[in-house]
Structure formats: C-alpha cells, structure tokens
Nucleic acid binder design. Structure first.
Lengths: 147, 147
DNA sequence: CTTGAGTCTGTAGTGGCTACAGACGGTACA
DNA sequence: TGTACCGTCTGTAGCCACTACAGACTCAAG
C-alpha cells in the first residue's frame, strides 16, 4: 500500500466477496472501474461499503439488476428520499414474492421427499417407494397425480 | 403417424416437457437416442414414461446426474431390488438435505425482507429501512451483523 | 401445388459466478 | 543483487438446466 487504499485481496477479505466475483462485478458495471496504480486495482472504504451492500442484498435473494437499481436509489439526493424508499420497497416486495414462491416449491418438495423416504422404512411395499413415487405409481391422489 | 409411435410434439404434450428440453435430454444422454423415421424422431409409451419420471424427479429437486442414477436403478433386475431401494433412498436423502438447506436460506431471507418491508409502513425512520438494512445500519444484532 | 404446421441441426444466450492458464508486479530475505 | 514467492493481471472457458433463436427441411391436407 503505497499511500492509501488497498488492493483487491484486502477488499475481498473486508467484503467477504471472492476476488473473481469482485472483478466480475466490475466487468458488468455493478461497481465502478477501480482506480489503478500501475496495473493493480486500488480501493477505498467506500468501495468496501458498496460491496458489502451488494453482498447483503445477494444474500437476501435480490438479483443483480435489482441491486443495480437499489444502489442507484442510495445515491439519489435527500429530496428524493420518500420516492427512493417507495421504489426500494417495490423492489423488495417483488423479491419477497419471488422468495415466497420458491419457499412454497421447496416445502412441497420436502413433504413429498420426506414421505417417500419415510415409506422406505415403514412400508412393506412391492418395490421401492422412492422409485414408485417418481414413476407415478405410489400414493397418487384422486386424479392420479402426485401431490 | 405412419405406423406406431409418435413425434416429439406429442411426446412433449404427454410428458409436459418442452420440445427443446427433450432434445436437450437426448443430447446429454439422459434419454436414449430416439428411433428415427426419415429425419424425425419417433417415440413409444415407454419413452413417455421415462420422460414423466424425469419430469417428476426434476420437480422434486433432483439434479440431472441424480436422475441418471435413479433411472439406472429402475432398470436393475428384481434380484437387486433391495440394493436399488437403498441406493434410491441414499440419493433421495442427499436431495432432501439439499432442499432443507435451501429452505432454511429462504426462510431467513423471507424473515429479513418481511421485517424491512414492514418497517417502511410502521417506523418513522431517518431514511429507508430497506436501504438501511442493506447498508448494515438497521436492526443489527449485538455483533453488528444482520440476522 | 400450395400452404402451413411441425420438425430438424447448430449455435448462442441466460444468471451469477468460478476456475483456470500464463504473464507480470512487488517485496522479504540472503 | 539475486531469488523465491505470493499477489495480481487479462482472457477465456466452464458450470447447471435449460431456452431461444435462425434457417432449412418434411409432410399432410386442401
């Protein structure tokens, strides 16, 4: 570190983002092109903050393009605060719905899998309950469909 | 339909798999190379069964390579029935654990998002609760981390 | 004979990274 | 001054499971 700022390895540790991921984010323009000294990228605390923001948003399921929008909102002037919050809320709601849909899907999977695996131990069944479930010949509902 | 069997469009309808997906499955060897009459692929009911098996397995979260293994198990002789069932159970358990892990992740996301969105309506907060959550400056725990 | 629907191959794109190869930079220590 | 070694660079390709074309063909009905 010649004067100030830190190289990509330090940023990676601070933000808990993979080095390759950081370079990827730069490539797609999610973070600005880093200042260079020589060939090396050098970063500030502001860059680290931005990256931690991204990391948190990703861990909450936001898509890259949503995060792009959210980042833009953080930069809007204080006059736009209420608008920005409404926009952020709209994006978060979309994401929440997405998360809920995926939850419903996974809950259904969990139930069916748990059932089929349980049957392996419990049932004396002509054949394998798991393979039968997948073949559509086990515990079908009144329409002949798996739950 | 000249004699017997049906073309890919009919198979697509029967199995509820996209035509492109069926061709993709053939390309990666998940289903055998279809019999051809002229240039067109022709399929039997057995093919449709296999594809429905795959479709159900995918909808339960099994990965393609797991499905490859499961399909192999369905073809093992009746002598291997108990072994095959144990193998199927092992694969299903791996998948169930995977599903559970994803469920836990999504539940955490749902909780945080619901909280932050709720705060938008409830709280009089200096700034946007959602953006604050992502910035790490809202409702942090005793270690300063987001939940 | 034409029309229109179905099918064909091959390739490229999606999202969000991750993993190299092979070259270059910078520093600590002998 | 040498050298060892880690960090960083660019560029490209791979992952998963599809999906979406373009542009050519096949085939049956009218």
């Amino acid at each position: 570190m010649t004067r100030q700022g830190f190289a990509i390895g330090a940023l990676s540790q601070q933000s808990e983002c993979n080095i390759e991921t950081i370079r990827y984010y730069e490539r797609i323009g999610l973070i600005p092109r880093a200042e260079r000294r020589g060939r090396y990228r050098y970063y500030t605390n502001e860059d680290a903050d931005r990256l931690r923001f991204i990391k948190r948003a990703r861990s909450l399921g936001f898509a890259i393009e949503e995060i792009r929008d959210l980042l833009r909102l953080t930069k809007s002037g204080s006059d736009d605060g209420i608008d920005a919050c409404a926009d952020a809320k709209a994006i978060a709601l979309l994401n929440l719905n997405n998360v809920k849909a995926r939850l419903d899907d996974l809950k259904r999977m969990e139930a069916v899998l748990t059932d089929a695996i349980g049957a392996c131990d419990r049932d004396i069944f002509r054949g394998c309950p798991i393979l039968a479930t997948l073949s559509g010949t086990y515990k079908t509902d009144e329409h002949g469909n798996l739950p």
